[in-house]
Write a protein that binds this DNA or RNA. Sequence first.
RNA 1: CGGGGAGUAGCGCAGCCUGGUAGCGCACCUGGUUUGGGACCAGGGGGUCGAAGGUUCGAAUCCUUUCUCCCCGACCA
Length: 431
Amino acid sequence: MKYSNFFLPTIKDAPSDAEIISHKLMIRAGMIKQSSAGIYSWLPLGLLVLKKIEQIVREEQNNAGAVELLMPTIQSSDLWIKSGRYDDYGKEMLRITDRSGREMLYGPTNEELITDIFQSHINSYKDLPKNLYHIQWKFRDEVRPRFGVMRGREFLMKDNYSFDLDENEAKKSYDNMFKAYIKTFIRMGLTPISLRAETGPIGGNLSHEFQILAKTGESTLYYDKKLETLNPETIDPNKLQSFYAAVDDQHDEKNCPISNEDLKISKGIEVGHIFYFGTKYSDKLNAFVQDKSGKNVPVHMGSYGIGVSRLVGAIIEAYHDEKGIRWPLEVAPFKVSIVNLMPEDQDCATKSLEYYEYFMKNNIEVILDDRICSIGKKLSDNELIGIPYQIIIGKRDLKDNLVEIKNRQNNESEKISSSSLIDFINNKLIK
RNA sequence: CGGGGAGUAGCGCAGCCUGGUAGCGCACCUGGUUUGGGACCAGGGGGUCGAAGGUUCGAAUCCUUUCUCCCCGACCA
């Protein structure tokens, strides 16, 4: 992508509405534009990141054996009346009346719909287990949307639903998802902390929430330091669930089961939540299968959510500095940015284009900053949008056949010979 | 939903108290000078002052109503 052809409206001053750092940076970096309270347009740069995160979530779901489908945003009230949640959900549910006077709603979650889909096609224990997910926009009419995309009213969520014959099997599905969640967040460069959680309005009796560490996080976490250094290849959900972790209002210093040496205290942001809720919805919505003995039994269900759009903000909260965003490589909108300080200089233009074409040809996501503007603006914009590797090309260095390469993750730069640049980047990006 | 605050150019704000030609900085456009850290000089465009009603010779400014947005708290991916 050439910057001159892209749509990347960076701004120097964030609007006074924006309060937290990720919100400010997302606006300044031209990632989002607010449309109304808690509702945002995703501009090209923001969309690239959102899609990256979505894709990682998708791949890890698929790896864990979940199957993707897509349910609508607009639902009829019928199923919600059956499940009893049409009234329970209250004002947080956006209700809509269609032209023929039917009561519709913009889905805040999908337990009802998925259970209905399941029950109309699955009748035998032989078809179990099943685990279905979708990545779809949700709407919850929060009393107080805030913090940009971290707490929007409209938000993109991955939610999936597991169906099992009995509690024992359901716990296996639960643990399977538990493990997939840890892997998903680690892949994004984050440190996930899993906590035993209240089940809330979804109901049920087993639940964990997943927070990621960020200095600016909303909640204070107390946890076993072993949770910080997990190897995604060797996760044992049962063992992990036994490690101590609590949010501040649950933490009790006197009764804390682990030693002070093992206890860590950090700030976190909730990005995922999983529930096992047994037969709560299958009972009400007739999701029964015949077991071996021919008896009709309600299936045991779990549901699992990841806030995809929230993660964009959460990752920025975890990775930024005073100059802007520092994207982890896996979610970065571009891997490499070629910053041509002097587009009007023939040598700079030629060299920049040479690199650009190489990266394009080799499917390394690259943005070429070919704008004609002051050097300071160019450098600071690039710091703001936080591309992991920035190749800075200027007349001065190029005379000596040098280019500067800046690693935005640790802000270290070095000058290397222009002929070794391609090898340098390849070594960094190909593992 | 309780408490507080704000709507004036794309963004950040001043003007309002004490009514009288709608301003400043950044951004934008034109020309020129610059060229390794948001550069400089000159010229220029852009506003139904959130909306409706009222008071007045005259309203961004005073009064009434209303809409929107933000912050703190209770609640959530």
